[in-house]
Computed example of a mutant assay.
Amino acid sequence: MLAFAIATLFVFAGIAAAVVVVDCLVKARAAYATLMREGEVMRAGLVLQAAARDMALRPSSRPITARRRPASLRPAMVQACAAA
């Protein structure tokens, strides 16, 4: 009974692995077709327009200019001295 359960587990694991490989092959084929189509368009002398989300330099929630620290948080100037 234990041997049958182990064999069944290996069969299901093999089937799952085969399904994953087939899924990856289908996605890779679609990506390859897209790249070839874009290559043909570029060789024809046309340029594809990038999506606006791909062109964003930074998220809009970040401040645009740098802010200075308040004077109370700046490090104090300390005299440097060397040990003799």
Rank of each mutant, 00 (worst) to 15 (best):
A56S: 10
V26I: 10
M77E: 15
A7G: 04
A28Q: 15
L46C: 12
P75F: 00
R68F: 11
A3F: 01
P63M: 03
V21G: 01
C24M: 13
V26G: 07
G45I: 01
I64R: 09
R58W: 03
I6L: 14
A66K: 14
D23E: 03
R69W: 12
R58K: 11
V19D: 00
G39Y: 07
C24E: 15
R37N: 09
R53M: 03
A30S: 09
A84E: 03
V78T: 03
A3G: 04
A80S: 14
A71G: 12
A5H: 06
V41N: 02
L2M: 07
A56F: 05
R58A: 08
R67P: 00
T34L: 12
E40P: 00
V41S: 01
E38D: 15
A16D: 10
V78W: 13
A71W: 13
V11S: 06
A28H: 12
L48R: 13
R74E: 13
T34D: 15
E40C: 05
A52E: 06
V21S: 08
R69Q: 11
Y32P: 02
F12T: 06
A83E: 15
T34E: 13
A52P: 02
L73I: 06
A13Y: 08
L9E: 11
G14F: 00
L57G: 14
A13N: 05
M77H: 13
A33E: 14
R67W: 08
A13R: 02
R43A: 09
A5E: 07
Q49F: 07
A83W: 12
A76S: 05
P59R: 04
Q49W: 07
S72K: 14
T65I: 14
P59T: 00
A71N: 09
L57W: 04
P70A: 10
A7W: 05
T65P: 01
S60Y: 12
R29L: 07
T34M: 05
R53K: 07
V19Q: 01
A17H: 04
P63K: 02
M55D: 03
A76N: 08
P63D: 07
R37C: 03
L46A: 15
G39T: 02
V21M: 06
D54M: 00
A31Q: 09
P63N: 09
Q79L: 10
G45L: 05
A3C: 05
Y32N: 13
M77G: 12
A71C: 10
A16I: 05
V47E: 08
L25G: 15
A52K: 03
R69V: 14
L25C: 14
I15C: 05
Q49G: 06
V11I: 11
A51N: 10
A44N: 07
A50Y: 08
P75K: 01
V78K: 08
L25M: 14
L46K: 15
L57H: 12
R29V: 07
A82C: 09
V19W: 02
M1T: 12
A30I: 03
L25Q: 11
R69Y: 06
C81I: 10
G39P: 00
R53Q: 04
Q49K: 12
P59A: 03
V47C: 07
P59H: 05
A66W: 12
A7N: 10
C81D: 11
A76G: 04
A33G: 10
R53S: 11
A31Y: 00
A7R: 10
G14T: 02
V19G: 00
F12R: 01
E38I: 05
